[in-house]
Design a protein around this nucleic acid. Sequence first.
RNA 1: GCGCCCGUAGCUCAGUGGAUAGAGCGUCUGCCUCCGGAGCAGAAGGUCGCACGUUCGAAUCGUGCCGGGCGCACCA
Length: 572
Amino acid sequence: MNVFRELAQAVRAALREATDGVVAGLEAPAAGVELPRDPAHGDFATNAAMTAARAARMNPRVLAEGLSERLRADARFASVEVAGPGFVNLRMTPEFWRTQIPVILKAGAAYGDSDIGAARRVNVEYVSANPTGPLHVGHARGAVFGDALARLLTRAGYDVTTEYYINDAGAQVDALARSVHHRYLEALGEGPGPMAADMYPGEYLKPLGAVLAEEFGPRWRDADEAAWLFTFRERAVAAMMAAIREDLAAAGIEQQVFTSERALVDAGGVERAIAGLEQKGLVYWGILDPPKGKKPDDWEPGRRQLLFRSTEAGDDVDRPLKKSDGGWTYFASDIAYHMDKAARGFEDLIDVWGADHGGYVKRMQAAVTAATAARLNVKICQLVRVLRGGDMVRMSKRSGDFVTLREVVDEVGRDALRFLMLTRRNDAPLDFDLAQAVAQSRENPVFYVQYAHARCCSVLRHGEDIGEASAEDLARLEEPEELELIRRLAAWPHTVETAAAAHEPHRAAFYLMEAATDFHALWTKGRETARLRFIQDDDPVGTRARLALVRATAIVLAGGLRTLGIEPTERM
RNA sequence: GCGCCCGUAGCUCAGUGGAUAGAGCGUCUGCCUCCGGAGCAGAAGGUCGCACGUUCGAAUCGUGCCGGGCGCACCA
């Protein structure tokens, strides 16, 4: 139970009484308890009287008066005031705030855990980059976002599974196999000439080419592609996935399930999925209009093809399930994959995609809605621009020369990478400044928050032999700055709940910056004002109380950082 | 042309239908005998892209414009 829900409950009960039972609770959708921006409006405010006024057939101000009269009977409130058009502003007593300290200390690392997820089974699929090369910094964003979202949902009481979908069935992995064969020929000392346009030119395939040359010798030098393609593809995909998993691990990410598209296709999953859609009348043979934008060169007008009725669920046009060569489209196998996830018992599917897949959302949601009982939520991560001290770092995918996830981790560390990636909403573009990421100052948020935690630990080390604070000791916490910090700490469980519900881990990141600000402010005050110093040799009682506050701060900061997958460092 | 996303301080960005819209950077002014000053306090800086609408109340919801990004049979 967090303070927010405690108060919402109190308001709900008071509202029921004040309206003689006409309004049973916070029924109006916009009604609730909120944190006012202006501290003059109290610790909490509720608009319940305004939103319930209509249902109760009462004047909002009159209702607010009735509401506040009942709330005043509650000893937790220092003051209850009606303001403006019918707000009820609530101010808690210092005693109430102080009781939060033992709550935090007792919960420890579990402080902020919630049960709003009600153990619902959620599948979070992220990264899922093609296994054709190393992850770049754009993948890093989706990776960090997906991982942090999964951790957040777990904290909020969801039963979360993290997953990576391996796209190992399309033409791109054949091109990968050919690229590896090219490197293999090079390693044999052949001069295979320039790579074909559809090959992957990066240096990263050279080691694998050398390994295969060592292992097989010239056996596949002059052989038909058909003879070696399978082997080279298997080996290449395995090598790429191993490298990808290493890179993810370097960023602190380890997914639980890896699903192979090829395995799904080979097992007949696509046929079964499409047959299921057919039974529902969602598949038909038809003719598609040419795309409205630039017309493809090889457009064949009037060709009949197998289509999915995605327009029935809000897509713009119906989408092809089969290619002109008779093979399944990526969309078809993706439908099968999502049906597979639903069949595994997930009620909520969350996909984290890059910005270039934005046009794919509607059709996939249409398919999931039509074919499964699950809900699909797609989170699009916008592009990342890499800067160094404000200047763009050039990226060229063509030459295979781009900023990789590993390079960024090596340069700035995984904590900085993760935190900075989470200081923006996922649906807004992100500038990632390498210089900012390594700065040891206020402008680097990860440093700033970790520093606050390290400071807590430093103070606690100095006060190691000081005992636990009793409830009476805690009464010594009466300075406004101290109570302000407690208020902030008490808001953490609510932050977890709202961030998880909105699928917005960045809210947790911003919360941590605010909590760090409050702590740094109090710390500095102690340098200026003797009575605010945490440790005072001539005042063991006050010292115990203040160290309890510092310990609670450390718990919240550490718990918050861990929720984002970031190490709460104890020394810097 | 169509779809999705974004327009908030000089710059980079937060902002849960609520009251006087907030941080960081940059600019200016202050604060170290000290538990870590790698920090803190303060000042200046805004027609929340524009216009209608819904609402007791709109940066937030809806519609239409204007900017910018991404994507637009069969690739993945």
